[in-house]
Design a protein around this nucleic acid. Structure first.
Lengths: 243, 243
DNA sequence: TAGTGGTCTAGACCACTGC
DNA sequence: CAGTGGTCTAGACCACTAA
């Protein structure tokens, strides 16, 4: 065989097969972060294909963020992380930065099932609208000092037992992916600086009129039409929010 | 010549030249959104290179989001900017949203060459530090009302003629990519809500003490070790900032 | 020096689009 | 049908890395 132009036997492109095999290997831990994948020559020999075809697979994996190809060395396994899954609190000084680990989350309102507010900020599709939502309210504390109030809404769609669920790693996102296979894939976020009104001032233990950072987010998921909505209010006197 | 393995004559890869040419053509309007680029066969004939080499350029442009390759048709110009290339101003109402096009940019300080401030917010690498920087200050206006003050710093590295350069499309990012082949590839951004001090209040025509959204950004580029730094201050009474 | 990824050639057959 | 992009081959030389 001197040429098959793909599609001769298996219908699926050969580079795609290599790509899928390697991706599966990375995610399942066959290749760990910091490892190098087999070299292009090895792969082309193993699969009985040209180096160019192997390279097609590798360049795609690099674009996915799973590996980094290094000239003269090899293809390094990286395993990307999505940056928008959390609002990270950054202190102004190194000392404050070290305190990140001590941030604590406190439920003001455990998840409850309810109807959507009539004046809900985001436009809802009919399916979401009809389903109603789960609502929860949490405060992030640092040294017993509240620094962020976050109100979260999820459509009540196939979230069986959500309100009773124990949070995995004390994290909404970890819970959604582990218990419901719902993964965040993108975000639209809007920012404002506002003055704390009486209610907000009380929740965050600051004076009325203090400038507060408002972050309004709509998170896209791997489930079509399923979005997570979040409204966060942050005191940024001593911290910045990385988003 | 049956093979040159690149680098024989010009030192810059041929696919890179094609890629830069096409990108420049798209951004400057030679190829408009909705147009098709010349076919792979045309390009390979015009440049005197293989179709595989042309394809390398096209796949990269597709990854950049500038084109979409369609089997049986051609390479469609899309010109989708990276979302972090601009801080988008969103009105609270549909009417305000329509006004987006009327946003105007006004230079408070045209690009000047200077040394970095001693207390510059971000850590600078030695190369940046030694090179000094270009600094500029711009105000975004809507209906003659200032809504955002943005101070931008770029390291003075291989930016020949930058301060005299006319901005392409009145855009810093378009200028960098068209004139210097510098493309933004990522961003780290931090947010705060602060009170307007006297200077800021004056620049933005608001009362002292008004809540102002501060956005501090470090933009990564395709040039190793070359970052663009931006400090933006936004009035968010009537608008939100999407970032 | 041997091995790796980066670039490139000069062909080929395929699936898809539009006339 | 001709033209397009998608996939693939079997080579090649290069720059870089590490022993």
């Amino acid at each position: 065989m001197q040429n098959n132009g793909n599609g001769s036997s298996s219908k699926i492109a050969q580079y795609k097969k290599v790509q899928n095999d390697l991706r599966r290997g990375i995610i399942t831990g066959k290749y760990e972060v910091g490892d190098f994948l087999p070299s292009e020559n090895e792969l082309s020999a193993n699969y009985g294909i040209t180096r160019m075809t192997v390279r097609n697979a590798l360049k795609n994996l690099e674009a996915e963020g799973l590996i980094q190809c290094k000239k003269g060395k090899g293809s390094l396994v990286k395993l990307k992380r999505k940056s928008f899954e959390l609002l990270s609190i950054k202190g102004f000084t190194e000392i404050m930065r070290l305190k990140e680990a001590e941030i604590d989350t406190l439920f003001v309102q455990h998840p409850i099932s309810k109807a959507w507010d009539d004046d809900f900020f985001w436009d809802l599709n009919p399916t979401e609208k009809k389903a109603g939502c789960y609502y929860m309210s949490r405060v992030r504390m640092l040294d017993n000092q509240p620094i962020m109030l976050e109100n979260t809404y999820l459509p009540n769609l196939s979230l069986i037992g959500f309100s009773e669920a124990t949070f995995v790693n004390n994290s909404l996102f970890d819970t959604l992916i582990v218990k419901y296979d719902i993964e965040m894939t993108g975000v639209t976020q809007k920012f404002r600086a506002i003055s704390a009104d009486a209610g907000l001032a009380n929740s965050l233990s600051v004076q009325e009129g203090t400038p507060v950072l408002e972050i309004t987010r709509k998170l896209k998921t791997n489930r079509e039409g399923f979005f997570v909505y979040s409204f966060a209010y942050c005191i940024t006197n001593e911290f910045m929010i990385e988003a």
